[in-house]
Design a protein around this nucleic acid. Structure first.
Lengths: 243, 243
DNA sequence: TGACATATATGCAAATTAGATATATGCGGT
DNA sequence: ACCGCATATATCTAATTTGCATATATGTCA
């Protein structure tokens, strides 16, 4: 078959088509650890296992729109930082039928994370433990609130592992950290988010300087309240130029 | 609908499914500039425009396997660095029907690039000109051998733009540059590849130090031949530990 | 044999980063 | 009112990295 006419000669309606779904990694920081929201599968396959919330992509719906819909319907959330992660398409990833899944990463503030839990009580907040350092990559562990290791359904452990890898990789050159923080935050909170994602502790003065020099932070002049010690100044994320 | 049973309650056969394809960005370096291999569309839509080679994903074929098959059939290539880039799923990206495309980035050595041209004469080698600096991102220009700007079919210009952005981003923390070089290469060749992708010139001693300190380069003791000046030592890429 | 073009090595200043230390500040207890 | 506490913020120095210039080495070709 000649390449030039490939798409035209090919009649896709004559072939079986796979189903296409989106799966969401709803990620937030709880108790200074990364955490993910899971749903429990009631039926086979993988009955009783925990899974990432997902849904099929409508024929007249873009991938981003499908992800936003799942975010709305499954987490009761109007808005969140949502970015495409990777597409998983192993033939046997779902035993029932061929399903290709476009994984999305949704970043939730602690407030949004808790709100989702309140709106959808079936969601389970699970802590993520990353056993590798730096950007080595590899499997991660998912822990229930009772600190038991959870086995995820399908290839969702792979999806979650890739989400953590991506998050670490993007952390210091992109604005993802701010998607995990409320509108006003202290430099300590920002550092806590970085440390939770990286799994390391960072040098405080160096971190402050780097962040302030970046030009993304705008001091508000307001200060946190309620602390039993000197209150820190509140900052706001302000994208540099045209973003 | 309860999330827990979503996948089970949902009968995908009752719904229209999109077609799923892979599109390949066959990328190499020619004359110290990034270049891509394109195919000409013969029929509507976008008749006469240049497109990325692609093909539909078989129902029993993984995404990676589909990409490898297209690489084989359309570029006559047994092997190349192949990595998933991004999935494009706008509803109207193909006017005939809903097609979701998983874009792959294939990195070719200059030798492999030329071999593909020889095996598949319909392929056009087009130079890529990146008008933005650093990792700003944005559209890129595609130039024919006669230096005319080419309009790509569908959203393939977006795919190519994302390929260049990804390549620049990965260049200095991953091993992608080596996928564009033959097995034995000089430090100057390595620097040329970096400069072609980044669109900037780099400081030579600093570049050498950084590359040698990384620990990925293994000196062979052999030297290039045929140059009218002092020959440079040939190096080999050697992944550090377990890769 | 010597000019040439490039590889390779070395040296130093500038910039960045890590780490330690000093000072500031609001709160709570006395 | 005052002092200790825990943390924020500022400052300083050493170590590391990077940029750039310069010196030396080496094969080809006239």
């Amino acid at each position: 078959m000649n390449e030039t006419d490939f798409l035209n000669d090919y009649d896709p309606s004559a072939f079986q088509r796979p189903s296409v779904a989106v799966d969401l990694v709803l990620l937030g920081i709880r108790d200074n650890r990364p955490a993910v929201l899971l749903v429990k599968r009631g039926q086979l396959p993988h009955a009783g296992r925990w899974a990432l919330p997902g849904g099929f992509v409508g024929i007249d719906e873009s991938l981003d729109a499908a992800a936003a819909r799942v975010l709305r319907d499954k987490a009761g959330m109007a808005e969140a930082h949502l970015e495409q992660l990777y597409t998983f398409g192993a033939v046997a990833r779902d035993r029932r039928m061929r399903i290709i899944s476009i994984a999305y990463l949704a970043l939730l503030t602690e407030q949004a994370f808790d709100a989702a839990l309140g709106a959808m009580p079936a969601l389970l907040p699970a802590a993520i433990q990353v056993p590798w350092s730096g950007e080595t990559g590899g499997p991660v562990n998912v822990l229930s609130p009772e600190n038991e290791t959870l086995a995820l359904a399908f290839d969702h452990a792979d999806i979650l592992a890739m989400a953590m890898l991506r998050l670490r990789g993007k952390l210091d050159y992109s604005d993802v950290a701010f998607a995990l923080l409320p509108e006003l935050f202290t430099l300590r909170q920002l550092q806590d988010v970085h440390e939770a994602i990286l799994g390391t502790s960072l040098n405080k003065p160096a971190f402050r300087r780097r962040q302030l020099d970046r030009g993304w932070l705008k001091a508000t002049g307001a200060y946190e309240t309620g602390a039993a010690f000197r209150p820190a100044e509140l900052y706001r994320f302000q994208p540099s130029t045209a973003d």
